[in-house]
């Protein structure tokens, strides 16, 4: 070693606004990724994805906001947590995808997926009834998306097998829950 130490670089402090936004929302640091691609090796949907997990992280580092927010992959992620479990740099692509989904919806980017519709009807059910009745959820999802014939053969089988009760249970406290949802949307009380 000669001379002084090179000045250290705080990797979290470099990168563009997209990396910063993702980090603020998800708590995971995209700038820490050194592209080993271990995430893509273990990802169950990488083979079909338009952008593979390690490529997504690189694009976030490179501030490719539009390409990232309009990708199919952020919606195809199954949140299996394999990437987060195996990453040597503690980057969670699954966590990034949660943040990117919310950012995509906030930016009103056209989602190449019915996941946002499913998310909405699901959370509506939790707000209104406290619990989700799968039959009511499926009916509302189909009304919302117009996908009436997809899986039309599944409901009769489930009904026959007793796996689709006609009436779900619910819990009281609807107005309290509505207030809880409203406070969460605002980031806390006040």
């Amino acid at each position: 070693m000669t001379g002084g130490m090179a000045p250290s670089i705080e990797i979290e402090s470099i990168g563009g606004s997209l990396a910063g936004d993702v980090q603020a929302r998800s708590g995971t640091s995209p700038m820490s990724c050194f592209q080993c691609a271990k995430c893509s090796s273990g990802c169950p949907v990488a083979a079909r994805a338009d952008i593979k997990p390690h490529e997504l992280v690189r694009m976030v580092q490179m501030d490719q906001r539009e390409a990232v927010l309009s990708s199919r992959f952020i919606w195809e992620c199954t949140s299996c947590q394999t990437c987060a479990t195996r990453c040597p740099q503690n980057v969670s692509v699954a966590g990034m995808n949660d943040a990117l989904r919310a950012m995509s919806r906030a930016a009103a980017a056209p989602a190449p997926s019915t996941v946002p519709a499913f998310t909405e009807v699901f959370l509506d059910a939790v707000r209104n009834r406290g619990r989700v009745s799968e039959l009511a959820l499926m009916i509302r999802y189909k009304l919302r998306t117009g996908r009436f014939f997809e899986d039309a053969d599944k409901a009769p089988v489930m009904l026959k097998k007793g796996k689709l009760p006609l009436f779900g249970t619910q819990v009281g406290g609807k107005s309290e829950r509505k207030a809880l949802f409203a406070r969460a949307a605002k980031g806390g009380a006040k």
Binding site: T119, R131, A184
Partner: peptide, 25 residues
């Protein structure tokens, strides 16, 4: 008694605070 839905993927993919608040309740 009076348990409510954990929020599942729908909550954690849209609002991290809600995703922690529903189980907390």
């Amino acid at each position: 008694k009076d348990w409510i839905c954990c929020g599942s993927t729908a909550a954690h993919a849209s609002d991290p605070l809600l995703a922690d608040a529903l189980p907390a309740k």
